[in-house]
Design a protein around this nucleic acid. Structure first.
Length: 723
DNA sequence: CAAACCTGATTTTTT
DNA sequence: ATCAGGTTTG
């Protein structure tokens, strides 16, 4: 067996991991250390060298993207398509098991998956239904509670109310929510995992079957597993299975959604004799960037301990820019981005990262002004758009009349005279008789409703029946197409003014083509329609289609995880914003913020800019803030200050303590102006001098005007009045 | 039924 | 500042 292609390109640590014996293994893989590569090569090693059948492998990731990438890379390494290899997300794999064993799992065959938006709607309705004291419970909080419990693997009956009446109420809401889901055959994301876990736990035969089948379990981003995911893995591994998990405790940034980095520590106890391999050689960033990242993360406690190194270049220092305000910050970033592009670099190789989405606006405005194409990550995905979900709701009703969530969504969309009153009657009937809204609608239409309302309800029900009947047997995309037209959603959206309606209609057309290119699995028992609907819920679809245009990349630091860019800007490094105010209170929160900072820094390959603003307008309020403590955690030797910190005269405090290692910052010059000087212009009003260049008659100053924004003015013409 | 108006909240995101 | 959600009004 020629193992060259599998091992040749690996360093010692990677090779050690890939060829580790058939024993549990924990690979601590630093940022940019070839984590995915190790997983892919491990899979290839097991198949090619150890002679393990692809069927005996289970590879788990967190995102569809990661799963797809892993499959592709394994296939191209082995040079053959690997059918029967289970690669997928936790949710995708759990779904697969539940579809196969729906009976044992206690689900109807045509159960459907609801996303968090559906879930929230359902909970809102539930709160109204149960007439819980209004205002006491925010639906979001209930959703948070339910998902939190499910993530921990807890059913209502397992939860201790701790004698707290509020908590008791939450538990009972959880129970009611469960009842509705069960009745409608609805499964939310957390439920997929929980059910899949219970399925194996409670069915000895099934468990044994899967334990025997999956000898090797490969897990990506292990630090992100939540309790139920880890429990499922342990169950599946059993006594004989060999888990091979890869993760980085320093990149655990999802504690708030149930991820438990502690699993990395627990793993060694749960699987005695675990081989631990650390991947510390980094192939991405310059030494300077790595040194800075190492220095920052060293401030965290309870780490596995790891120090990234590279045999590459030292690289340029990290540039720190102190902006006057968020506009100035944006101007700076865009200026540097322009230079980068002017030097012939790709826009797409530059990323602007920020802590919270609200920060993107100012940056976007600047980019628009500068005519630099950009793309913001993290918007609504295709299958999450309202019009798409409307169309899907019709399709789901066709598949399952008892799907209350979908029923409620489209019963009066487009408006067909079924108002709040009527729906309310249906709800109370449904509640009293523990039945679905569909059945309730049928019952009250024949008994309780007056003529007009009854007609409307009957019309809606026969519309759905007609859709089901007339499209039965058609190809999936024809089915989707017909349903969209029969629903008259198109006419409904045509009435939307502006481009909004246009876009919606285009999206509906796009849904038809999505259906056209959807390939149902012939081995699958469920109908192509059900399969398509599951697919839509589970893979919400990537953002914009024009992802491949050469655009500057804007995203939060969270969504930058796993990516890399030659040029990176980290914006808004101010205490209160990053680390976020809501995280600084406890050390766990602060340490997670620090890990996020570590993630951000390690995205950069060559050049890293860090910016902060002294003044930032947030929620319509001006705030003054100190530079992020993370900036001062970077040793000075790796940092270059772009400009002496500007001493800004401001009414609040005329003198401020200067930041460590910075000059007092008053920049006198022969023009008689200084940075931070307040000035008044007869047309633009009051402003602050941000910058200046040139001498004598050509001297220009950059002024940030309070109302007119930032402008460059020729000093000799501007007639600025010093204030 | 839709438009106008008021209120409150506003970290991070995948499935 | 902005947006979503709910409520009131025409």
């Amino acid at each position: 067996m020629d193992v060259t292609p599998i091992l040749d390109s690996l360093n010692d640590a990677q090779r050690q991991a890939v060829t580790s014996p058939s024993e549990p293994a924990l690979v601590i893989a630093g940022a940019g250390s070839g984590k995915t590569r190790v997983l892919v090569h491990r899979a290839a090693w097991l198949i090619e060298v150890e002679g393990i059948s692809p069927q005996s492998l289970l590879a788990v990731t967190f995102t569809n993207k990661a799963a797809a990438e892993m499959r592709n890379r394994i296939e191209s390494l082995l040079n053959v398509p690997v059918r029967h290899l289970w690669i997928g997300t936790f949710h995708g794999l759990a779904h697969r098991m539940l579809r196969r064993h729906w009976r044992e799992a206690g689900l109807p065959q045509n159960f459907q998956i609801i996303d968090s938006d559906d879930q929230l709607r359902l909970i809102k309705r539930l709160v109204k239904n149960l007439e819980v004291d209004d205002g006491r419970w925010v639906p979001k909080e209930i959703q948070w509670f339910i998902n939190g419990q499910k993530d921990e693997g807890l059913r209502p009956k397992h939860i201790d109310d701790e004698g707290d009446p509020d908590r008791r109420e939450l538990i009972s809401l959880y129970q009611s929510y469960e009842d509705i889901c069960q009745r409608g055959g609805l499964v939310d994301f957390a439920e997929l995992l929980l059910r899949a876990h219970e399925l194996l736990r409670d069915n000895a035969e099934l468990l044994e079957h899967y334990q025997r089948r999956f000898q090797h379990l490969l897990v990506d981003e292990f630090q992100d597993t939540n309790a139920i995911q880890y429990a499922w893995l342990r169950l599946l591994a059993g006594k004989k299975g060999v888990p091979f998990v890869v993760g980085d405790d320093d990149q655990s940034i999802y504690r708030w959604r149930g991820a438990r980095v502690e699993h990395i520590h627990r793993f060694q106890k749960d699987f005695p004799g675990t081989n631990i391999v650390k991947l510390e050689q980094n192939y991405r960033s310059t030494e300077t960037i790595l040194n800075a990242a190492n220095a920052i993360i060293a401030n965290n406690s309870s780490r596995m301990g790891k120090k990234l190194w590279t045999d590459g270049a030292t690289g340029e220092p990290i540039k720190v820019y102190s902006a006057y305000n968020e506009r100035d910050e944006a101007d700076f970033v865009i200026g540097r981005l322009r230079d980068w592009i002017a030097q012939g670099n790709a826009r797409a190789d530059a990323a602007i990262l920020y802590r919270s989405n609200a920060q993107s606006r100012v940056l976007e405005e600047g980019l628009i002004n500068a005519r630099i194409p950009y793309r913001v990550y993290g918007g609504l995905r295709f299958f999450e758009r309202a019009e798409i979900k409307d169309a899907l709701a019709y399709l789901r009703l066709i598949s399952n009349r008892d799907d209350d969530s979908s029923f409620e969504r489209v019963v009066n969309k487009p408006t067909r005279g079924i108002g709040a009153r009527t729906v309310e009657m249906m709800r109370s009937y449904a509640r009293a008789n523990a039945c679905s809204l569909w059945r309730a609608a049928g019952a009250i239409a024949s008994d309780d409703l007056n003529g007009r309302a009854a007609n409307a309800v009957n019309a809606f029900m026969s519309l759905i029946e007609r859709m089901a009947r007339e499209t039965n047997g058609l190809d999936l995309h024809d089915r989707v197409d017909h349903v969209i037209h029969l629903s008259t959603l198109i006419d409904f959206f045509k009435k939307d003014k502006g481009e909004k309606g246009e876009t919606r209609i285009e999206n509906l057309a796009e849904l038809v083509s999505a259906a056209k290119s959807f390939e149902p699995d012939p081995a699958e028992e469920m109908s192509p329609l059900d399969e398509f609907l599951s697919h839509a819920a589970l893979e919400s679809g990537e953002g914009q289609a024009d992802a491949w245009e050469d655009c500057a990349q804007l995203m939060t630091m969270h969504s930058a995880k796993g990516l890399e860019f030659p040029l990176v800007f980290m914006c808004g490094l101010e205490d209160g914003l990053f680390p976020h105010q809501r995280s600084v209170a406890d050390s766990q929160g602060l340490e997670e913020e620090r890990r996020l900072c570590y993630v951000g820094i390690t995205r950069a390959m060559q050049t890293l800019y860090i910016t902060h603003a002294e003044q930032r307008r947030l929620h319509g309020m001006d705030n003054f803030s100190q530079p992020s403590r993370f900036i001062s955690e970077i040793p000075d030797e790796f940092v270059e200050e772009i400009r002496p910190r500007v001493q800004v005269a401001r009414p609040m405090r005329s003198t401020r303590p200067t930041h460590q290692g910075r000059s007092a910052g008053i920049t006198d010059n022969d023009l008689g102006i200084r940075l931070g000087q307040r000035v008044c212009h007869k047309k633009f009003g009051d402003g602050v001098i941000l910058n200046y260049e040139g001498q004598g008659a050509h001297a220009r100053v950059e002024v940030n005007f309070e109302s007119a924004g930032t402008k460059w003015l020729v000093l000799s013409y501007a007639n600025l009045e010093l204030m």
